[in-house]
């Protein structure tokens, strides 16, 4: 690369304003990519299943046929959970980054993962919840309570829940909850074993019961999230300017946090604490669409499931016949990608 390329790149790294038509075309293209990824998610796995069998599993399902059961009862719910939980993680990441104006915000920062983890080990200890189907509710309640606690703590004081106070409250609540979780698993082996399985973050071992349990929350959360674009655009200008524009900042924040709690609570309950997608994909969306949150949210909605399912498929084939959990794959491919992103984009631009 010649020296003359440098100024050009500086110009390019400024937020881009693409035409509506270009962005809409991109959105349709992404929907196509997601469809392709879903196809692979259903056709690839530990068991080789022919396309004709897969077709038959959908058109003329025979429950006594093992291969068809694998498609219908394992891979379909796994893919569906990947789509919805992925969308939820991406949207909640985008909202959190916008509302806290913190480029590093992700569900972890709000104490959501640790809240869910604490509730799960508590559930196992108290009522002996032993399968993911029973403790999904604990995870959801824990995530919700932790978010409420973080927001309430950060709201003390005249200026309300500012980004810095939210980050601090999140760190404090996470520390408390983590120590409670550790205290329980030190004395309860069953809780430790379940937590170990849940904590990696995976789409495997979750079937239709988990999907149906979390679906209503995911749908409500996604609908709410898609409606926050305009308010996020206002908040992006800063609290004072947003107030001056007539936005009810406090109310907006509360609505957004409720949305995030629903989205992350349900996604975390379904797949465990999956890191990186919620953090990285909104940045990726911002790179493509520019600063308009309405587009960032729409793109995150499709991009995150694509990334999540692709990582899941990679995990299925990379150490065959075993499987690598999607949380691990994302950590491995997500980290270098995030470093690249930080290197080439000024993330403090939010």
């Amino acid at each position: 690369m010649t020296m003359t390329a440098r100024p050009a790149r500086a110009v390019e790294s400024r937020p881009r304003h693409r035409s509506r038509a270009a962005l809409a075309t991109g959105f349709v293209l992404l929907a196509g990519v997601l469809a392709v990824v879903c196809f692979f998610s259903i056709t690839m796995g530990a068991r080789g299943v022919g396309l004709s069998t897969i077709w038959k599993a959908f058109t003329d399902y025979e429950p006594s046929n093992a291969a068809e059961t694998v498609i219908r009862e394992l891979r379909v719910p796994r893919t569906l959970i990947g789509i919805f939980a992925g969308a939820a993680l991406g949207l909640s990441g985008a909202i959190l980054q916008g509302v806290t104006r913190n480029p590093l915000a992700d569900p972890g920062i709000m104490g959501i993962n640790s809240g869910a983890a604490t509730a799960i080990v508590f559930g196992i200890m108290v009522i002996g919840a032993q399968s993911i189907g029973t403790y999904v509710w604990f995870a959801f309640a824990g995530a919700g309570l932790a978010t409420v606690a973080v927001y309430a703590l950060a709201s003390f004081g005249r200026e309300g829940a500012t980004p810095v106070k939210l980050a601090l409250a999140g760190a404090a609540v996470t520390a408390i909850l983590t120590s409670i979780t550790n205290a329980i698993v030190m004395t309860n082996v069953a809780a430790l074993n379940e937590l170990r399985f849940w904590q990696v973050g995976s789409l495997a071992g979750r079937y239709f019961p988990v999907f149906w349990q979390t679906l209503p929350f995911l749908v409500i959360g996604i609908v709410l999230a898609l409606g926050t674009g305009r308010a996020l655009n206002g908040l992006a200008l800063g609290q004072d300017l947003a107030l001056a524009l007539g936005q009810r900042v406090k109310l907006t924040r509360v609505v957004m946090f409720v949305t995030v709690a629903i989205l992350c609570g349900a996604a975390t309950a379904a797949c465990g604490p999956i890191v990186f997608v919620g953090l990285v994909v909104p940045h990726l969306a911002r790179m493509i669409c520019g600063p308009d949150y309405r587009w960032i949210l729409s793109y995150s909605l499709l991009l995150t499931p694509i990334v999540l399912l692709t990582a899941d498929i990679i995990g299925r084939v990379v150490i065959s016949p075993g499987e690598l959990q999607v949380g691990v794959v994302l950590g491995v491919i997500g980290a270098p990608f995030f470093i690249l992103l930080v290197r080439y984009r000024n993330l403090a631009e939010l």
Binding site: G45, L74, P321
Partner: peptide
């Protein structure tokens, strides 16, 4: 032998 749930039959 660690058998994936896809292959338990």
């Amino acid at each position: 032998e660690n058998l994936s749930w896809e292959n338990v039959d």
